[in-house]
Simulated assay, not measured.
Amino acid sequence: MLVDSHCHLDFPDFQTRLPEVLATAAAAGVGRMVTISTHVARFDTYRALAEAHESIFCSVGTHPHNAADEPDIPAERLAELSVHPRCIAIGEAGLDYHYDKSPHDVQQRVFRTHIEAARTTGLPLVIHARNADEDMIRILTEEMTRGRFDAVLHCFSSGETLAQVGVELGLYVSFSGILTFRNSEEIRRIAAAVPHERLLVETDAPYLAPVPYRGKTNEPAFVAHTAHVLAEVVGVSDEEVARFTTANFYRLFSKAAAADSIGGQALAS
């Protein structure tokens, strides 16, 4: 079984196609997926998707693009919402200096709030990082000294130093369809250096469809193509990548393992 550890099934791309998308995912061996929050205000939507479909879990958090829209949601509120049994993570939150849709100081403050929520709840933080490596490294290092928290650097497209620091801090690193792109030699080199026990795969659907679907709407089934390239990069079989990325998912997202009998099987394998 494969897990799509990060997708956005609430987006308009899937509103009329969700049953087909889930069936295609199942046929491709993708048994679980996490629909990721971008607005806390939309948590009811994420929760409803996870309640309606056994294969879907959800998170709660504010994407850095939307930090200016939700600048003052306290960690206590994130923790309160995360109690829902199908909510297994905090985020996505982080820093995005590429599009600059929210001021940097607001992004940083909101990010630290999400770190606090992850620390107090014990749920992993889903981290978005784009063109902000220096500040991301600084904040992660500072916050880890204040108290440990679990996290994943999702859709990794940053520099080697951030990956190294993330692994040193105990974070996981998740790779998307970017790994399959022809001009992504550096990302493949970074993926090869990440310990197998820290690797995850994802789609970030509907974005970043992997080769051979690049330019089309991405969907959870396509994570199999990213996993295949990851297998080539790290020098193991597709089956081995499926085994260890699924085990890693259930180890990091331990609430999913508790809610899902497959989690116990994956961890025992």
Rank of each mutant, 00 (worst) to 15 (best):
I187E: 03
I187Y: 03
I187N: 02
I187F: 03
R188H: 11
R188Y: 08
R189L: 13
R189P: 06
R189M: 12
R189C: 05
R189I: 11
R189G: 11
I190W: 03
I190N: 06
A191P: 09
A191V: 10
A191C: 04
A192P: 09
A192C: 05
A192L: 06
A193W: 08
A193I: 12
V194M: 08
V194C: 08
V194G: 07
P195H: 10
H196I: 15
H196G: 14
H196F: 15
E197D: 15
E197G: 12
E197I: 11
E197N: 14
R198L: 09
R198D: 08
R198Q: 13
L199K: 12
L199P: 10
L200S: 12
L200T: 07
L200D: 08
L200P: 12
L200H: 04
L200K: 10
V201P: 15
V201A: 06
V201Y: 05
E202P: 11
E202N: 13
E202L: 10
E202F: 11
T203E: 05
T203L: 08
T203R: 06
D204I: 07
D204N: 12
A205T: 09
A205V: 10
A205C: 15
A205K: 11
P206V: 05
P206Q: 04
P206E: 10
Y207W: 13
Y207T: 06
Y207G: 06
L208T: 02
L208S: 11
L208H: 01
A209Y: 04
A209K: 03
A209D: 01
P210N: 10
P210L: 03
P210K: 03
P210A: 07
V211H: 13
V211Q: 06
V211C: 02
P212Q: 00
P212K: 00
Y213E: 04
Y213G: 00
R214F: 04
R214S: 02
R214M: 04
R214D: 03
R214Y: 06
R214K: 11
G215Q: 00
G215F: 06
K216Y: 04
K216R: 14
K216C: 05
T217H: 12
N218D: 09
N218T: 01
N218M: 04
E219F: 01
E219S: 12
P220A: 06
P220M: 05
A221P: 00
A221Q: 01
A221H: 00
A221L: 02
V223G: 00
V223N: 00
V223S: 07
V223Q: 01
V223K: 02
V223Y: 05
V223C: 00
A224E: 02
A224Q: 11
A224K: 13
A224Y: 01
H225N: 08
H225M: 00
H225C: 00
H225Q: 04
H225G: 01
T226A: 02
T226K: 00
T226E: 02
A227G: 07
A227M: 05
A227I: 01
V229Y: 04
V229L: 06
V229T: 14
A231N: 13
A231F: 07
E232W: 11
V233F: 11
V233Q: 07
V233G: 08
V233M: 09
V233W: 03
V234K: 07
V234N: 01
V234Q: 10
V234A: 03
V234G: 11
V234T: 14
